[in-house]
């Protein structure tokens, strides 16, 4: 607790909010999971952006494609204990909680959870190791991307996380994939007018863990 810098937390929060991310402070993992399950139940049904044979389809969504009846969230990066905790909460509410096989749901899922190893206060950025394809896809094909970040892992600026990036990239010989994530996917390609939710998440929530 002692190495939480409130100024960095405040700056991070302001910067993430400035790019349309929602930031919430959660005392514990369990609170984080409750937040996620509630969000999953309250959001609009997930649209199916591609064919997915055998999947139960609901009414057309705002983009005139069928929606998914089963609520789905993916949390492939969680450790066994955390995953069991989340899965329990999901089961109670009838939510499918994925740990792998995320690719099968590439047409779209409700929520994807990533865990950041560092945050960058200057831009509200999360540094996420995404070498595992399931972990990467969780943050890409979900309508709401959730990143869990410990408050004590927030650093002032990009140069101050260069070492963490170096560790995340690793020294080989295995390949790696690391992602800096800042807000939902966005574009200004039509008339320079900003719009969110292009090929990635429509929304992003950062859950700041009291740790």
């Amino acid at each position: 607790m002692s190495n939480i810098n409130p100024e960095l937390v405040e700056k991070f929060t302001a910067m993430a909010q400035a790019v349309a991310a929602t930031v919430a402070e959660v005392p514990s993992k369990e609170d984080a999971f409750k937040y996620i399950v509630d969000l999953c139940l309250s959001k609009d049904p997930c649209e199916l952006l591609a064919d997915e044979p055998g999947t139960e389809k609901g009414p057309l969504g705002p983009n005139r494609v069928p929606t998914r009846v089963q609520r789905v969230l993916a949390a492939p990066s969680l450790n066994d204990e955390d995953f069991a905790l989340l899965e329990n909460l999901c089961q109670e509410k009838g939510i499918l909680c994925l740990r792998d096989n995320v690719r099968k749901y590439a047409a779209g899922i409700d929520i994807g959870i990533n865990e950041a190893v560092a945050g960058v206060a200057a831009s509200g950025t999360c540094l996420c190791p995404t070498t595992d394809e399931d972990v990467r896809l969780a943050g890409m094909i979900s309508e709401i991307s959730i990143v869990i970040l410990k408050k004590s892992d927030i650093y002032p600026d990009l140069p101050s996380v260069a070492g963490i990036m170096r560790d995340a990239i690793g020294n080989g010989p295995e390949g790696s994939f690391t992602t800096l994530i800042t807000g939902p996917s966005r574009t200004a390609d039509i008339e320079c007018v900003g719009a969110v939710g292009v090929h990635g998440p429509l929304m992003m929530h950062v859950l700041l863990l009291e740790a």
């Binding site: 790019v19 690719r103 070498t131 595992d132 394809e133 990239i169 994939f177 690391t178 800096l180 990635g200």
Partner: peptide, 16 residues
């Protein structure tokens, strides 16, 4: 301040 995503791809990973 920064774009939504910066990918750092360092070699091939497992493809599922």
């Amino acid at each position: 301040r920064i774009t939504s995503y910066v990918s750092w791809v360092c070699g091939p990973t497992k493809w599922k």
